[in-house]
Design a protein around this nucleic acid. Structure first.
Lengths: 211, 211
DNA sequence: CTGAAAGTTGAACCAGTATTCAAGTTCGGG
DNA sequence: CCCGAACTTGAATACTGGTTCAACTTTCAG
């Protein structure tokens, strides 16, 4: 995680020495663990600094408040999630294959980093603006991909304004992923991500109607 | 809302007179408003009792704790949501039509009761067990409907274990609805629910693959 | 070396708020 | 009517946990 450079703490709180950067990183990791395990409200600065093995006051050398770390963390995790999925999808032959690969990667990612997932979702109630930012940027990327795939005649949508339908389809697909991530990544790790991705992939490309 | 009977407060706290039932109801409505506007942690017993126009202590005549009202509220709202959707879907000609009608009703419901929606979602972090209960019961109903529709040859799924695929499809469809509800019911009330439901309906029945 | 800047420390402060309780008021069955 | 049960009241309690700060230590440029 690279949070030290911009995006997170107030500019005047950025560390200026190597020691400072190390300490900041320890605090960030500790905060991720604390928030991930306990949730925003149960988590405490005391817990964060204990995990990071620094004194209580040190926290405020690098962050303005509890909410400030949390926001920084959400932004960083949003970036990490997008990067992970993008990487998994980068050489998919077409959009529908990308859909399948992306979901598989997402479920695996949630299993590997349940705390990131929880933190992003809880942001809905702690810092709604960054939460929206997260999904809006996801949806924008999705919309672009859908439009491109339509251009290449890989997919086709319902009749009517395709701007509007791509937007709605993007949000539908995101919702699918988030809930499948919760169900199979967070709650029950029994099923194989590939199998779940196959099922959802079928739904998205073929639909359920019997022909 | 009927929370007075069972499901909510501890049995020994149930009101025994008409006056008591009235007060309990005022508290429940006040709590729904308070939690819905402020979220669980910003909400306070003081705010709830002020809204209900009763003294602070009266709250504890009917509930054991802040968390107890919240849990009662989530259960009640879960019930109300399911009832509303079931009603809207009850005389749909087939499963795919039901899908479309259910989503339309759900988006409208979220617009009419944004506080219910917020409260249920926040339960994920305040009372995870009731949150799971909510979606698991939704998913169970969904799974039964899917299996019945498959029997009637209205729909068809991917190859392989249909138990597993119905379960996954149920969660995928729930996730779709929840995110479309958030995007079009809570955040942006511009679009017509019917139009969004049409688009999602297309996705679910036809799929995106060009034929 | 050296002194100023950067970093660290943890006790103290403070504000908020869930919960308790003992005293008072209202209700309803006999 | 009357009395005990049901209900209401709000001040007091108890405690939590975010934030501040002044003293102390470490680092590093000149």
């Amino acid at each position: 995680m690279n949070l030290a450079s911009e995006g997170g703490a107030a500019a005047d709180k950025a560390p200026r020495t190597e020691r400072g950067r190390k300490t900041l990183q320890r605090l960030i990791d500790a905060a991720a663990a604390e928030f991930g395990e306990l949730g925003y409200h149960e988590a405490g600065i005391i817990g964060i600094t204990r995990r990071a093995r620094v004194a209580l006051g040190t926290f405020y050398t690098y962050f303005d408040s509890k909410e400030a770390v949390f926001r920084a963390l959400v932004r960083e995790m949003s970036r990490a999630t997008r990067a992970h999925v993008a990487e998994a999808v980068k050489d998919a032959p077409d959009r529908l294959a990308a859909e399948r690969l992306g979901l598989e990667a997402f479920i695996a990612f949630v299993r590997a980093h349940p705390e990131l997932y929880r933190i992003i979702e809880e942001a809905q109630f702690v810092a709604e603006d960054v939460y929206r930012e997260h999904y809006v940027s996801f949806a924008d990327a999705y919309r672009r991909n859908l439009a491109a795939a339509r251009q290449r005649l890989q997919i086709e949508g319902p009749a009517g304004d395709s701007e509007e339908s791509d937007e709605a389809i993007a949000w539908a697909l995101i919702g699918m992923s988030v809930f499948l991530g919760m169900r199979y990544g967070l709650w029950d790790k029994g099923a194989k991500p590939a199998r779940i991705a196959d099922i959802a992939g079928f739904l998205v490309s073929e639909g359920l109607r019997r022909r």
